[in-house]
Each structure stands twice: as structure tokens, then as C-alpha cells.
């Protein structure tokens, strides 16, 4: 217990406390002004908007991938299962470079998008794509075990009891998955909010357009504007903390609701 607390303090709590102490050097008025500047607000919009869209997309497609991995035996299944973890393992800067190359107007995918008038690189779309990429494993890896746990027998029971495929899906499968899906969604969302490395290359970092909050913090630091940086950092800290609470709350709710038989 004692060791855990010491460790936790050194690694997590003390740096966070420093952040709070640092912002305390500012008056509340100054803090508010820095945290709600026009540029800051625009960066929040980009960050949270893109993160939300990315997390929603991941919730849908991550579930589909988890479903395929659990329910179907196809050649290369083990490979696909391993590839899901790539965004976890890859240094984010590498992901960023790769995504930029692929979605650039001359890139493998970008060249097909360009004639359609879709530009991914240096737009919020590019940011969203990068956030989808890094958030995918969170949804797959939280939904997968729950799906594995949901025996095929339960679906057979529903069919024998007279349920159509659709009724089985909406009344049995989706409700059973919802808690895990919410958790996966929240994790992907939280990760996306804090993402920096994979986004900076593809976003182009245009002020008021594609500048994400973590990047704005970097910019402030480079300008030796420590107060401005910490004000933004505090906003991020509060949001992350709220997300964490929400995730834990969802987890507890999930355990209560879908209690293991």
C-alpha cells in the first residue's frame, strides 16, 4: 500500500500537482482569459470535434472487426488480429508520417480522393483519419472479450424462443455489448483528445482551422509562454480527469448490468 502510493505520487500525482501550482501563479481572470482565447477555443473545437467523430467511427467499425475476429474463421485471421494492435505499438510520429504520405494528393489513397475534390491532408478530415487510426485498437480490444463471452448458445436460445435475427440482434446482442462499447468509445475518445504525434504532420497546423490543443500547448512553450501553456494544459487535465471518471463509472455500471454468469 505504502509503496503503491509513493510510486503513484512520483509518477503521476506530483507532476500533475506541479501543473496546478504553476497555474496558481496566474490570477483567475488571467487564467480564464488565456484558456478562452479565440485561438484556444478554435483548438478545442478541432480537438474535441475530430476526436468525437473518430471515436464514433471506431465504435462502429471496431465492433465490426471484433465481430469478424470472434465469430468467423478465415485465412489470415491471426494476422488481422495482430494488425489491430499496430496503432498501439507504432511510435505516433511514424503513424503520422505514414498517414500523411498515404493521404497526400499524390499518395496511394489521396490520389483517388483528389479527383473527387476531397483533400484529407491539412484538413480536419486528415486529423479525424489519424485519430481513427490510433483509436481503433481501444474499441476492438474492449468489445472482443465480451463478444467471446457471449456464447453462440445464447443466440440459439433466442432463436428457439421465437426471435427473428433482427430481434436477437437488437434485444440480446446489442444490449450485451453496450457497456463494453461505451467503455471502448470513451477510451478511444480520451486517447484522441490527447493525441499529438500522429496528428501534427497530417493536420498542417493552420491556426483556427487545423490546430489541435496539444499542438497549441507546444507552440506556447516554444514561445516561452509558460503561463499560456499551463492554462491550456489545465483545461486538458480537467477534461481528461472527467473522461477518466466517466470511463470508470461506465465500467462499474457495465459490471453491475452485465454481471458475469
Amino acid at each position: 500500500m505504502g509503496y503503491t502510493l509513493v510510486y503513484l505520487s512520483l509518477i503521476v500525482l506530483i507532476p500533475l500537482a506541479t501543473l496546478v501550482v504553476k497555474t496558481a501563479e496566474l490570477s483567475p481572470g488571467e487564467l480564464w482569459a488565456l484558456a478562452t482565447s479565440r485561438r484556444a477555443i478554435a483548438s478545442y473545437q478541432v480537438t474535441f470535434g475530430a476526436s468525437l467523430v473518430a471515436a464514433l467511427v471506431n465504435a462502429a467499425f471496431g465492433t465490426a472487426i471484433a465481430w469478424a475476429l470472434v465469430r468467423y474463421r478465415f485465412p489470415g485471421r491471426a494476422l488481422v488480429d495482430a494488425i489491430v494492435d499496430v496503432p498501439f505499438a507504432l511510435p505516433t510520429a511514424v503513424s503520422g508520417l505514414a498517414l500523411t504520405a498515404v493521404f497526400a494528393p499524390t499518395g496511394w489513397i489521396g490520389r483517388w480522393l483528389a479527383p473527387l475534390g476531397i483533400q484529407a491532408v491539412f484538413t480536419p478530415l486528415g486529423i479525424t483519419l489519424a485519430l481513427i487510426f490510433i483509436g481503433l485498437p481501444f474499441v476492438v480490444r474492449t468489445v472482443q472479450p465480451v463478444l467471446e463471452d457471449l456464447e453462440a448458445e445464447v443466440e440459439e436460445a433466442a432463436a428457439v424462443l421465437g426471435a427473428t435475427r433482427w430481434q436477437t440482434l437488437t434485444r440480446i446482442i446489442v444490449p450485451a455489448l453496450t457497456p463494453a462499447l461505451l467503455t471502448g468509445f470513451a477510451l478511444a475518445f480520451a486517447r484522441a483528445i490527447g493525441e499529438y504525434g500522429s496528428v501534427v504532420f497530417i493536420s498542417g497546423n493552420k491556426q483556427f482551422e487545423t490546430e489541435i490543443t496539444p499542438l497549441l500547448i507546444m507552440t506556447r512553450l516554444e514561445q516561452f509562454d509558460y503561463a499560456g501553456a499551463t492554462a491550456l494544459a489545465l483545461v486538458m487535465l480537467i477534461v481528461s480527469f472527467a473522461m477518466l471518471l466517466a470511463i470508470n463509472g461506465l465500467g462499474a455500471w457495465a459490471r453491475r448490468r452485465a454481471g458475469h454468469a
Binding site: 445464447v154 436460445a157 428457439v160
Partner: peptide
């Protein structure tokens, strides 16, 4: 089909709907 037969089936491992 299984759905149309209206038979009652009880499984060894219950197969209850956990969230209900």
C-alpha cells in the same frame, strides 16, 4: 426453422440472457 417450431429448449449451461 428453429423459430417457427415452438419447442422449449433448456441448455446445460442455462444460456440465460445476462443483461435481462
Amino acid at each position: 426453422s428453429a423459430r417457427q417450431r415452438n419447442v422449449g429448449l433448456v441448455f446445460q449451461h442455462y444460456a440465460l440472457f445476462r443483461h435481462l
